[in-house]
Design a protein around this nucleic acid. Structure first.
Lengths: 224, 224
DNA sequence: TGTACATCAGTGAACGCGCGTTCACTGATGTAC
DNA sequence: TGTACATCAGTGAACGCGCGTTCACTGATGTAC
């Protein structure tokens, strides 16, 4: 039997249907195709109903974008917890790349959406997306500080941000290559990311010395 | 006095006006706004004239995209020539990052366009953009081979592609950070990129050994 | 060199389409007594 | 518990807009004799 829906329940149900419909549409490709009318059609309601729930198309898109990116950020944030549980410090480092990679690989639609809208200043999704990127960078910077990277003064902070940017970007391209089938083995991908940190972590010993000086030292040490 | 334009000249002039208009529009933001009618208006011709020169809106967009990305690739390709001219091998490496960075920084609109359309499967620009990305990766892989990175067998080739992807992605994010004002000093950016190669070039000594084993060796060497 | 015709670049007006949004309305749910 | 009215979720039809594209046409340029 059909439970006698209260007005509130009915309205919430319809709203959810609209949001779900928009979500499917937005994740399955081109968000320029996420039209108010299309969303309504997919939710099996009249076009006018859309405006009983959202002030405008952009209103829905913004709400949805916040939801989606918060979700992704939360999933990515679990990586640190999981990494902390790893036995050795090497395993910890690998975990710190493994989990984000797995998250991105498991949510290709969401991942691709983030990549797509990131550079669209005009898109209503652009804002949430850039906020998301900024947050992710902050998260990673924090991680680096925990790992003992120097972070005093603006120059060292800037360096940490650069390292975070590089780690994130590297993770993203390689995840993309994995999704494209170019790098079928995630272990190889993690190996590569660990290798990148072998370079960037040299910044830990950077105190006024230039990259070239530092590099020369490392090379000497290896050859000795 | 107005030179008596021949028909051919007149038509070419109009075509150029249309392409230039489209180019300005596409570089100055949202390419979804590059409508046939907008382009015609900006070129000061009637809307119907557009179709005397291009079969459709997509036709123009594709032609334009090819032009733009070829242009960018050509500019980036000069980096290798310039790098070869550098005196020392360290300077050479720095140049290999410095020039691409300078190119991206000098063409922010074009750079941002490439980023924007890269992940749009439906956009008529998407194809050219992805072809461009693939070419750039090949170019960098070639560069790595020249620098003595091992490239025998599918595994090593894959590794080279990964390294190329990482170098490109790192260059791009940092260039973006420079454009955003977050990393105002390009020298610092180059330092960071050189640091990244300090990690990835460890792949040169990788022959069947794992990243962790190799890393342990390096750490030992440094501490000795 | 002049005349008659062919070609062709460019035009204004119109078409159909999908879209975002509005509006007067309907019928079911909630509430006051 | 029943009745009269208020509220409100959802609707169908319509509006205006910008867009991609087409079409019959114009007037200048090219060509054959």
């Amino acid at each position: 039997m059909s439970a006698p829906l209260t007005r509130r329940e009915a309205k919430e149900r319809t709203r959810k249907r609209l949001i779900d419909a928009a979500r499917e549409l937005i994740l399955s490709g081109d968000e320029t195709r996420v039209a108010a009318s299309t969303v309504a059609k997919r939710a099996s309601v009249a076009g006018a109903t859309f405006y009983e729930h959202f002030r405008s198309r952009d209103d829905l898109l913004k709400a949805l974008a916040d939801d989606l990116f918060d979700e992704l950020r939360e999933k990515l944030a679990t990586s640190r917890w999981e990494a902390l549980a790893a036995p050795s410090s090497e395993e910890k480092l690998r975990q710190e790349f493994q989990t984000p990679l797995a998250v991105l690989a498991a949510n290709p639609d969401l991942f691709r959406l983030a990549l797509r809208v990131r550079h669209y200043p005009s898109s209503p999704l652009g804002d949430s997306s850039r906020r998301f990127s900024g947050n992710t960078r902050s998260d990673v910077v924090e991680e680096l500080v925990d790992r003992g990277y120097p972070h005093d003064g603006p120059e060292e902070r800037r360096r940490l941000e650069m390292i975070a940017d590089v780690h994130i970007a590297a993770t993203e391209v390689l995840a993309l290559g994995y999704l494209a089938g170019r790098y079928p083995d995630l272990n190889e991908v993690v190996d590569m990311l660990v290798l990148v940190t072998r370079g960037t972590r040299l910044a830990r010993e950077w105190h006024g010395r230039s990259a070239l000086e530092l590099d020369a030292e490392v090379v000497q040490a290896r050859n000795s």
